[in-house]
Design a protein around this nucleic acid. Structure first.
Lengths: 364, 364
DNA sequence: CCCTTTTATGGAAACGTTTCCATGCTGTTG
DNA sequence: CAACAGCATGGAAACGTTTCCATAAAAGGG
């Protein structure tokens, strides 16, 4: 049906090798011949087949990208970053969503392997073994936005932990991450600086043993500020609207003495805003709200929401660079120099205020 | 490097044809042999190469998907729908973003063609010739969420226009769309029903001759309701935050007598909310706002925004079905029975109110 | 027990490229 | 003028599958 290189060669009266040279750019072809070939190709609407080429060159020009949910603003930014970079590298992108389900992650990894992608960028969920299993294929893998839980070094990027521990963490898989710990810390410091002491945290669930990295960061930040961390100040939710809402409602009702809430994601943030409205809490007079992820609606809220911005787009871009870089096969050692940490930014808007007077009174 | 079918055949002591049969499921293989092959494959970590297979079978199992911007909530939903459907069909998805740029669309179409995808789903911008040129490849193409402008039949899906005109429109390319005209109409009727007469419209630009389909629908709806459409009641913006903001600010300042605004997209909606706040207009007391696209933040706004919900996910899903359906090659005629129109839904929230009394007064 | 189906298997030819190698030129250089 | 470098070109061998065809063995029917 579609014209092949042979058709073009025949039409132009040359050998297929010559046609190949014209299209791949390699090798010398006289101007006259090139023109003849190009004309024939145009005539036949010929387009070199990527699958034929891939078979021979053993490179497909494709990158695999797996995120939990394209509909999530952060993921979407990350995807956009990857697409941007991939485009500039001349690669295309196979996208799939994991929904945070390890079984699906495994299927997707399998598919990427079969498709012989040149590299993979994954925003893993849970412990991420579907991906650590994938590295055996030899295809470059990069974690983006998050890396599998269960890493010994609690506070990534800080001085602690030798190179060895670092290499062990993430199984030697490079990662490009937001500096969540610093982001959470900045938000916590801000809230504490406003006088808040009873600060709720809306986090992600930890099905396995290790608690979420952000929750760790939250506890650590409060501890460092000398604020005691009560256990039932943190609520966990699965990454769905319903679950987030339930968690937020539970937390705010259980602890009516809360003066501030820090949401670890935009879903939790949404839930916090909604629940506060439902409970007739004025923001920020009665309750201060801060959130991780500076999504578009943060500015549209009333009051506009204070948020920790994570550079989703940059994360995707850099991760893609890494995934494609090692693609120059047989580069030998890929420096496992620890994760790339991109800075977060605390965007102060109107949703946080100094601790309400009467609450402080009631306490004395 | 990676094991091939030959390695497995050698390891299992069988011919490559047998290995192929084991993995493709076709043909008869004795249980004992199958087991032996599977064991050898597991041992070698063998995975059949999709590129080898694709070369032979002339199907890649891939679908191309092009949207203007993954970061836009509607596009993201659409993408999610496509991924969902593709997964259930056992296809994978190549995603790329057009940014509304025809040149990029052309490049993407070219890439899809080279990659020999089995089908393409596109949310076209402008007149969409990059895509209408693509149909010559014989690869099934489906428009989703929008179709190229310049279609003779103004009010799609309504009685008017013969089958011939319909087939001409969109160049015989099937399309899955939200029933925008009905959606706009419902919003317009709602606003007029509340007493509004001077209703602004925030639309998309029309670089070429034909105005945006939604703008047409807006004019038609108002006309049908007996409300005169003044020309400077509509403002156009490019699909960027800045442009949308500028358009909204321009409109609201130019026409301070406006009592309501209908935004034709979520970017315009954002802009309307922001500008109203900037201008100290109380919503809905001073200005009613309604918007097309029921995004997450519509409910978080204060007041929550009335919106026309478009079934982005369903659109993606159905479009994917169509793109993959015709993939059973040589099905003959692909019924060009006009676009599939999916219903919209007017979600009434708190951002629209009856016309302010004093404005009506001032008018008399 | 022979002939005919069925079932299990392997060989080999595609599929559309790239690339190595060989061949025939045209100019240059000693 | 001989030899040789360099260029333009074509032939053919991969790359990893699927699938047609042939063969061989096993099963069934009279």
């Amino acid at each position: 049906m579609a014209a092949t290189i042979k058709d073009v060669a025949a039409a132009a009266g040359v050998g297929i090798a010559t046609v190949s040279r014209v299209f791949s750019g390699a090798g010398a072809v006289s101007a006259a011949t090139r023109e003849r070939v190009l004309a024939a190709a145009r005539e036949l609407d010929y387009r070199p087949s990527a699958v034929g080429r891939s078979l021979k060159t053993r490179r497909t020009g494709g990158l695999g990208l797996a995120v939990p949910d394209v509909t999530d603003p952060f993921c979407a930014e990350l995807v956009a970053g990857v697409l941007d970079c991939a485009r500039s590298l001349g690669q295309h992108v196979l996208l799939d969503v994991t929904l945070g389900d390890p079984a699906r992650e495994a299927e997707i990894a399998e598919r990427f392997a079969e498709q012989r992608v040149d590299g993979v960028i994954a925003l893993p969920s849970g412990s991420g073994e579907p991906w650590s299993g994938f590295v055996r294929t030899g295809v470059p893998l990069v974690y983006a936005g998050r890396r599998p839980s269960g890493h010994p070094e609690g506070r990534q990027g800080r001085g602690g932990g030798g190179e060895a521990a670092r290499a062990r963490a993430g199984g030697g898989v490079p990662a490009v991450l937001a500096d969540d710990a610093a982001g959470i810390r900045s938000a916590a410091e801000y809230l504490v600086g406003l006088g808040h002491r009873r600060i709720g945290f809306l986090g992600a669930p930890a099905p396995g043993a290790p608690p979420d990295a952000r929750e760790d960061a939250f506890r650590a930040a409060l501890a460092a500020l000398g604020v005691p961390v009560e256990e039932d100040l943190v609520a966990r939710a699965r990454p769905t609207r319903d679950s987030a809402y339930a968690a937020a409602a539970g937390l705010l009702q259980r602890r009516s003495d809360l003066t501030a809430v820090l949401a670890s994601g935009n879903l939790s943030g949404e839930a916090a805003v909604l629940v506060a409205r439902e409970l007739d809490l004025r923001v920020p007079a009665d309750l201060s709200i801060a959130m991780v992820d500076d999504v578009a609606w943060a500015e549209l809220c009333d009051p506009p929401l204070t948020a920790v911005a994570r550079p989703g787009r940059d994360i995707g871009y850099r991760a893609c660079e890494l995934a494609a870089r090692d693609t120059g096969r047989e580069t030998g050692r890929r420096a496992p120099s620890g994760p790339v940490l991109l800075p977060t930014d605390l965007i102060v808007r109107g949703s946080c205020a100094p601790t309400p007077i009467r609450r402080d009174r009631a306490r004395h």
